[in-house]
Design a protein around this nucleic acid. Structure first.
Length: 302
RNA sequence: CGCGGAGUAGAGCAGUGGUAGCUCAUCAGGCUCAUAACCUGAAAGUCGGAGUGUUCAAAUCCUCCCUCCGCAA
Protein backbone atom coordinates (compact mmCIF):
# COMPACT_ATOMS: atom_id res chain seq x y z
CA UNK A 1 0.00 0.00 0.00
CA UNK A 2 1.42 3.33 -1.04
CA UNK A 3 0.87 6.35 -3.23
CA UNK A 4 3.67 8.72 -4.35
CA UNK A 5 6.76 8.19 -6.44
CA UNK A 6 8.94 6.85 -3.65
CA UNK A 7 6.35 4.18 -2.93
CA UNK A 8 6.16 3.37 -6.61
CA UNK A 9 9.92 2.91 -6.85
CA UNK A 10 9.83 0.69 -3.81
CA UNK A 11 7.03 -1.39 -5.30
CA UNK A 12 8.96 -1.80 -8.51
CA UNK A 13 12.04 -2.88 -6.60
CA UNK A 14 10.14 -5.48 -4.62
CA UNK A 15 8.57 -6.88 -7.75
CA UNK A 16 11.87 -7.10 -9.56
CA UNK A 17 13.44 -8.87 -6.61
CA UNK A 18 10.86 -11.58 -6.79
CA UNK A 19 8.45 -10.66 -4.04
CA UNK A 20 5.01 -11.98 -4.80
CA UNK A 21 2.79 -8.93 -4.70
CA UNK A 22 -0.78 -10.19 -4.76
CA UNK A 23 -2.47 -6.79 -4.63
CA UNK A 24 -1.71 -3.09 -4.52
CA UNK A 25 -3.72 -0.52 -2.65
CA UNK A 26 -3.28 3.16 -3.43
CA UNK A 27 -5.15 6.44 -3.37
CA UNK A 28 -7.89 6.90 -5.93
CA UNK A 29 -7.30 8.81 -9.14
CA UNK A 30 -7.45 12.53 -8.53
CA UNK A 31 -7.93 15.65 -10.55
CA UNK A 32 -4.64 17.45 -10.66
CA UNK A 33 -3.60 20.91 -11.77
CA UNK A 34 -5.40 23.82 -13.33
CA UNK A 35 -6.91 21.69 -16.04
CA UNK A 36 -7.97 19.09 -13.52
CA UNK A 37 -6.54 16.23 -15.47
CA UNK A 38 -7.45 12.92 -13.93
CA UNK A 39 -4.20 11.48 -12.70
CA UNK A 40 -3.36 8.02 -11.44
CA UNK A 41 -1.00 7.69 -8.51
CA UNK A 42 2.57 6.64 -9.37
CA UNK A 43 1.99 3.42 -7.47
CA UNK A 44 -1.03 2.62 -9.58
CA UNK A 45 0.94 3.14 -12.76
CA UNK A 46 3.63 0.70 -11.67
CA UNK A 47 1.07 -1.86 -10.54
CA UNK A 48 -0.69 -1.69 -13.88
CA UNK A 49 2.60 -2.06 -15.65
CA UNK A 50 3.08 -5.42 -13.95
CA UNK A 51 -0.57 -6.41 -14.16
CA UNK A 52 -1.05 -6.48 -10.42
CA UNK A 53 -4.62 -5.97 -9.17
CA UNK A 54 -5.08 -2.41 -7.88
CA UNK A 55 -7.57 -1.30 -5.26
CA UNK A 56 -8.29 2.35 -4.57
CA UNK A 57 -10.71 2.61 -1.67
CA UNK A 58 -11.77 6.19 -1.01
CA UNK A 59 -11.88 5.41 2.68
CA UNK A 60 -9.99 2.31 3.71
CA UNK A 61 -11.42 2.89 7.18
CA UNK A 62 -14.81 1.76 5.89
CA UNK A 63 -13.97 -0.23 2.80
CA UNK A 64 -11.62 -3.14 3.37
CA UNK A 65 -13.74 -6.27 3.07
CA UNK A 66 -12.06 -7.04 -0.23
CA UNK A 67 -8.79 -7.59 1.62
CA UNK A 68 -10.18 -10.57 3.47
CA UNK A 69 -10.72 -12.34 0.18
CA UNK A 70 -7.24 -11.52 -1.01
CA UNK A 71 -5.96 -12.90 2.28
CA UNK A 72 -2.36 -11.64 2.03
CA UNK A 73 0.43 -13.06 4.18
CA UNK A 74 1.79 -9.61 4.90
CA UNK A 75 0.89 -6.02 4.22
CA UNK A 76 3.59 -3.41 3.71
CA UNK A 77 2.75 0.28 3.57
CA UNK A 78 4.95 3.17 2.54
CA UNK A 79 3.46 6.66 2.34
CA UNK A 80 -0.05 5.44 1.66
CA UNK A 81 -1.82 8.56 2.82
CA UNK A 82 -4.69 7.09 4.82
CA UNK A 83 -4.91 5.75 8.33
CA UNK A 84 -5.26 1.99 8.21
CA UNK A 85 -7.96 0.64 10.53
CA UNK A 86 -7.55 -2.18 13.01
CA UNK A 87 -9.76 -4.34 10.86
CA UNK A 88 -7.10 -4.33 8.18
CA UNK A 89 -4.25 -4.83 10.61
CA UNK A 90 -5.88 -8.06 11.78
CA UNK A 91 -6.06 -9.65 8.33
CA UNK A 92 -2.57 -10.79 7.33
CA UNK A 93 -1.16 -13.71 9.28
CA UNK A 94 2.30 -12.12 9.41
CA UNK A 95 0.95 -8.71 10.33
CA UNK A 96 1.25 -5.26 8.81
CA UNK A 97 4.51 -3.42 8.46
CA UNK A 98 5.14 0.20 7.62
CA UNK A 99 8.15 1.99 6.22
CA UNK A 100 8.31 5.35 7.97
CA UNK A 101 10.52 8.16 6.68
CA UNK A 102 12.34 8.96 9.89
CA UNK A 103 14.35 7.34 12.62
CA UNK A 104 11.57 6.58 15.04
CA UNK A 105 10.57 7.50 17.66
CA UNK A 106 11.46 10.88 16.20
CA UNK A 107 8.94 12.45 13.85
CA UNK A 108 5.95 10.24 14.08
CA UNK A 109 3.24 11.52 11.77
CA UNK A 110 2.50 12.71 8.28
CA UNK A 111 5.57 14.69 7.25
CA UNK A 112 8.69 13.11 8.74
CA UNK A 113 10.95 13.88 5.81
CA UNK A 114 10.10 17.56 5.77
CA UNK A 115 10.30 17.70 9.56
CA UNK A 116 13.91 16.53 9.49
CA UNK A 117 14.74 19.41 7.17
CA UNK A 118 12.72 21.97 9.12
CA UNK A 119 14.79 21.09 12.15
CA UNK A 120 18.07 21.15 10.27
CA UNK A 121 18.88 17.57 11.12
CA UNK A 122 22.06 16.12 9.72
CA UNK A 123 20.91 12.55 9.86
CA UNK A 124 17.50 11.02 9.37
CA UNK A 125 16.43 7.72 7.94
CA UNK A 126 13.76 5.16 7.46
CA UNK A 127 12.28 2.69 9.93
CA UNK A 128 10.57 -0.61 9.25
CA UNK A 129 7.98 -1.04 11.95
CA UNK A 130 4.94 -2.92 13.06
CA UNK A 131 1.66 -1.15 12.43
CA UNK A 132 -0.62 -0.83 15.39
CA UNK A 133 -3.71 1.20 16.01
CA UNK A 134 -1.79 4.12 17.41
CA UNK A 135 -0.09 5.91 14.54
CA UNK A 136 3.58 5.12 13.98
CA UNK A 137 3.87 3.74 17.49
CA UNK A 138 4.56 0.05 16.83
CA UNK A 139 7.68 -1.94 17.54
CA UNK A 140 10.64 -1.28 15.28
CA UNK A 141 12.25 -4.09 13.32
CA UNK A 142 14.95 -2.35 11.33
CA UNK A 143 16.30 1.08 10.53
CA UNK A 144 18.52 2.62 7.93
CA UNK A 145 20.19 5.98 8.33
CA UNK A 146 20.25 8.64 5.64
CA UNK A 147 22.67 11.52 5.83
CA UNK A 148 21.30 14.95 4.97
CA UNK A 149 23.72 16.94 2.86
CA UNK A 150 24.02 20.69 2.71
CA UNK A 151 22.38 20.89 -0.69
CA UNK A 152 19.55 18.49 0.02
CA UNK A 153 15.98 19.67 -0.15
CA UNK A 154 12.69 17.85 0.23
CA UNK A 155 12.83 16.51 -3.32
CA UNK A 156 16.29 15.03 -3.00
CA UNK A 157 15.68 13.74 0.51
CA UNK A 158 12.46 12.05 -0.57
CA UNK A 159 14.47 10.23 -3.20
CA UNK A 160 17.13 9.20 -0.73
CA UNK A 161 14.57 8.03 1.80
CA UNK A 162 12.76 6.15 -0.93
CA UNK A 163 15.93 4.37 -1.99
CA UNK A 164 16.80 3.60 1.60
CA UNK A 165 13.30 2.32 2.22
CA UNK A 166 13.57 -0.11 -0.65
CA UNK A 167 16.99 -1.33 0.49
CA UNK A 168 15.71 -1.77 4.00
CA UNK A 169 12.69 -3.71 2.82
CA UNK A 170 14.79 -5.99 0.64
CA UNK A 171 17.15 -6.72 3.50
CA UNK A 172 14.74 -6.97 6.35
CA UNK A 173 11.53 -8.44 4.97
CA UNK A 174 12.90 -11.96 4.37
CA UNK A 175 14.34 -11.98 7.87
CA UNK A 176 11.08 -10.77 9.28
CA UNK A 177 9.15 -13.46 7.49
CA UNK A 178 11.53 -16.08 8.89
CA UNK A 179 10.99 -14.72 12.36
CA UNK A 180 14.58 -13.58 12.75
CA UNK A 181 13.85 -9.98 13.65
CA UNK A 182 13.01 -8.88 17.11
CA UNK A 183 10.67 -5.94 17.53
CA UNK A 184 12.09 -3.14 19.61
CA UNK A 185 9.61 -0.93 21.45
CA UNK A 186 9.94 2.80 20.91
CA UNK A 187 11.24 4.89 23.77
CA UNK A 188 8.18 6.95 24.57
CA UNK A 189 10.27 9.69 26.18
CA UNK A 190 11.90 10.46 22.84
CA UNK A 191 8.74 10.63 20.75
CA UNK A 192 8.11 13.69 18.62
CA UNK A 193 5.38 14.39 16.10
CA UNK A 194 4.92 16.13 12.79
CA UNK A 195 1.54 16.85 11.28
CA UNK A 196 0.15 17.49 7.85
CA UNK A 197 1.70 20.64 6.40
CA UNK A 198 -0.92 23.33 5.91
CA UNK A 199 -0.65 26.32 3.60
CA UNK A 200 -0.14 28.68 6.53
CA UNK A 201 2.81 26.55 7.63
CA UNK A 202 4.48 27.35 4.32
CA UNK A 203 4.62 31.08 5.04
CA UNK A 204 8.04 32.39 6.01
CA UNK A 205 8.06 34.42 9.20
CA UNK A 206 10.82 36.97 8.73
CA UNK A 207 11.16 37.28 12.49
CA UNK A 208 12.45 33.74 12.82
CA UNK A 209 16.11 32.93 12.91
CA UNK A 210 18.01 32.57 9.66
CA UNK A 211 18.56 28.90 10.29
CA UNK A 212 14.89 28.23 10.95
CA UNK A 213 13.89 29.94 7.72
CA UNK A 214 16.59 28.07 5.87
CA UNK A 215 15.18 24.81 7.19
CA UNK A 216 11.67 25.75 6.15
CA UNK A 217 12.79 26.65 2.63
CA UNK A 218 14.67 23.40 2.23
CA UNK A 219 11.88 21.31 3.68
CA UNK A 220 9.32 22.73 1.28
CA UNK A 221 11.39 22.77 -1.88
CA UNK A 222 10.73 22.02 -4.67
CA UNK A 223 7.15 21.43 -3.71
CA UNK A 224 5.17 23.39 -2.67
CA UNK A 225 7.79 26.01 -1.80
CA UNK A 226 8.02 28.35 1.17
CA UNK A 227 6.65 31.80 0.48
CA UNK A 228 6.46 35.36 1.67
CA UNK A 229 5.26 38.63 0.20
CA UNK A 230 6.95 41.57 -1.46
CA UNK A 231 4.33 44.28 -1.61
CA UNK A 232 1.24 42.37 -2.70
CA UNK A 233 3.06 39.77 -4.70
CA UNK A 234 3.52 36.28 -3.39
CA UNK A 235 7.10 35.14 -3.71
CA UNK A 236 8.19 31.56 -3.30
CA UNK A 237 11.74 30.86 -2.21
CA UNK A 238 13.04 27.58 -3.55
CA UNK A 239 16.67 27.78 -2.68
CA UNK A 240 18.55 29.83 -0.18
CA UNK A 241 21.41 29.82 2.26
CA UNK A 242 21.71 31.38 5.65
CA UNK A 243 24.33 33.77 6.88
CA UNK A 244 25.01 34.35 10.52
CA UNK A 245 26.13 37.66 11.91
CA UNK A 246 24.61 40.95 12.91
CA UNK A 247 23.05 43.16 10.30
CA UNK A 248 21.49 46.55 10.72
CA UNK A 249 17.97 47.07 9.51
CA UNK A 250 14.65 45.46 10.26
CA UNK A 251 13.61 41.88 9.87
CA UNK A 252 12.47 41.24 6.32
CA UNK A 253 14.42 44.16 4.92
CA UNK A 254 16.42 43.59 1.75
CA UNK A 255 19.90 44.59 2.82
CA UNK A 256 21.72 43.61 -0.33
CA UNK A 257 20.57 43.22 -3.93
CA UNK A 258 23.40 42.98 -6.40
CA UNK A 259 25.30 40.38 -8.36
CA UNK A 260 26.91 39.14 -5.18
CA UNK A 261 23.66 38.23 -3.56
CA UNK A 262 20.12 38.98 -2.53
CA UNK A 263 20.06 39.21 1.24
CA UNK A 264 17.09 39.52 3.54
CA UNK A 265 17.68 40.35 7.14
CA UNK A 266 15.95 38.21 9.70
CA UNK A 267 16.34 37.45 13.35
CA UNK A 268 19.84 36.27 14.14
CA UNK A 269 21.40 36.63 10.70
CA UNK A 270 20.24 36.86 7.13
CA UNK A 271 18.86 34.70 4.36
CA UNK A 272 20.71 34.66 1.06
CA UNK A 273 18.05 34.02 -1.55
CA UNK A 274 19.30 32.00 -4.49
CA UNK A 275 16.23 30.83 -6.42
CA UNK A 276 12.75 32.25 -6.24
CA UNK A 277 9.51 32.70 -8.11
CA UNK A 278 7.04 35.54 -8.18
CA UNK A 279 3.42 34.58 -8.72
CA UNK A 280 2.61 34.44 -12.41
CA UNK A 281 6.31 34.24 -13.24
CA UNK A 282 8.69 31.39 -13.68
CA UNK A 283 11.19 30.20 -11.16
CA UNK A 284 14.46 32.05 -11.61
CA UNK A 285 17.78 32.70 -9.97
CA UNK A 286 18.33 35.80 -7.86
CA UNK A 287 20.33 37.60 -10.53
CA UNK A 288 17.48 37.46 -13.02
CA UNK A 289 15.10 38.59 -10.34
CA UNK A 290 17.25 41.59 -9.53
CA UNK A 291 17.59 42.48 -13.23
CA UNK A 292 13.88 42.68 -13.65
CA UNK A 293 13.09 44.22 -10.27
CA UNK A 294 15.28 47.24 -9.73
CA UNK A 295 15.41 49.26 -6.54
CA UNK A 296 14.93 46.28 -4.30
CA UNK A 297 17.30 47.59 -1.69
CA UNK A 298 15.64 48.52 1.60
CA UNK A 299 12.26 47.22 0.58
CA UNK A 300 10.65 44.69 2.83
CA UNK A 301 9.57 41.10 2.58
CA UNK A 302 6.72 40.28 4.86
C1' C B 1 -16.62 26.17 -18.65
C1' G B 2 -13.46 26.96 -10.75
C1' C B 3 -10.56 32.30 -9.79
C1' G B 4 -6.36 35.16 -11.42
C1' G B 5 -1.43 36.69 -13.59
C1' A B 6 1.94 36.41 -17.82
C1' G B 7 4.09 35.59 -22.98
C1' U B 8 8.70 42.08 -26.00
C1' A B 9 16.85 40.75 -27.89
C1' G B 10 20.38 34.76 -24.63
C1' A B 11 17.98 35.92 -19.29
C1' G B 12 14.84 39.16 -16.25
C1' C B 13 11.66 43.34 -17.06
C1' A B 14 9.63 48.52 -18.91
C1' G B 15 6.73 50.25 -22.67
C1' U B 16 -1.45 50.53 -23.13
C1' G B 17 -2.11 53.93 -30.63
C1' G B 18 2.65 57.28 -33.59
C1' U B 19 9.51 54.97 -36.50
C1' A B 20 11.16 49.25 -29.87
C1' G B 21 13.83 50.61 -24.35
C1' C B 22 16.30 49.25 -19.32
C1' U B 23 19.37 45.81 -16.26
C1' C B 24 22.32 41.51 -16.74
C1' A B 25 24.79 38.20 -20.04
C1' U B 26 27.64 38.05 -24.99
C1' C B 27 31.45 40.15 -28.46
C1' A B 28 35.31 44.00 -29.56
C1' G B 29 38.50 47.76 -27.75
C1' G B 30 40.51 50.51 -23.48
C1' C B 31 42.23 51.15 -18.31
C1' U B 32 44.97 48.08 -14.77
C1' C B 33 50.35 44.22 -11.96
C1' A B 34 45.58 42.01 -12.43
C1' U B 35 40.24 41.15 -12.34
C1' A B 36 34.19 38.36 -12.02
C1' A B 37 35.87 45.56 -11.12
C1' C B 38 35.77 50.12 -14.14
C1' C B 39 35.36 53.01 -19.13
C1' U B 40 33.98 53.00 -24.51
C1' G B 41 31.61 50.70 -28.45
C1' A B 42 29.01 46.58 -31.05
C1' A B 43 25.89 42.59 -32.12
C1' A B 44 21.25 40.65 -31.00
C1' G B 45 13.64 41.39 -31.21
C1' U B 46 9.07 39.41 -37.89
C1' C B 47 6.95 42.44 -29.62
C1' G B 48 3.64 33.76 -28.38
C1' G B 49 0.63 32.35 -33.12
C1' A B 50 -3.44 33.47 -36.64
C1' G B 51 -6.89 37.28 -38.58
C1' U B 52 -8.68 38.47 -45.96
C1' G B 53 -10.65 42.60 -37.48
C1' U B 54 -10.59 48.31 -36.06
C1' U B 55 -7.33 52.48 -37.52
C1' C B 56 -3.89 57.22 -41.52
C1' A B 57 -0.98 54.36 -37.88
C1' A B 58 -1.14 48.34 -33.48
C1' A B 59 3.67 45.55 -28.97
C1' U B 60 -0.38 48.67 -27.55
C1' C B 61 -7.62 48.03 -29.29
C1' C B 62 -10.92 43.53 -31.08
C1' U B 63 -11.70 37.98 -32.16
C1' C B 64 -9.85 32.92 -32.03
C1' C B 65 -5.81 29.58 -30.73
C1' C B 66 -1.13 27.92 -28.14
C1' U B 67 2.17 27.97 -23.92
C1' C B 68 3.81 29.18 -18.87
C1' C B 69 2.69 30.46 -13.79
C1' G B 70 -0.06 31.77 -8.75
C1' C B 71 -4.63 30.24 -5.98
C1' A B 72 -8.26 26.57 -5.35
C1' A B 73 -8.91 21.25 -5.66
Amino acid sequence: MGTPTISANCLRGLIEHGFNIVAVITQADKKVGRKEIITKSPVKLVAEEYNIPVYTPIKIRLDYEFLKEINPDLILTFAYGQIVPQGVLDIPRLGCLNLHGSLLPKYRGASPIQAALFNNEEVTGVTLMEMIKQMDAGRMYAKKEVRIEKDDNATSLFNKIGDAGLELALEALPKYVDGLLEGVPQDESLVSFCGIIKPEDEKIDVNCSAKTIYGLIRGLSDNPGAYLYLDEAKIKIYKADYVSGEYSGENGEIIQADKNGLLMKCHDGAIKILELQKEGKKRMDYRSFINGNQNLLHRYFK
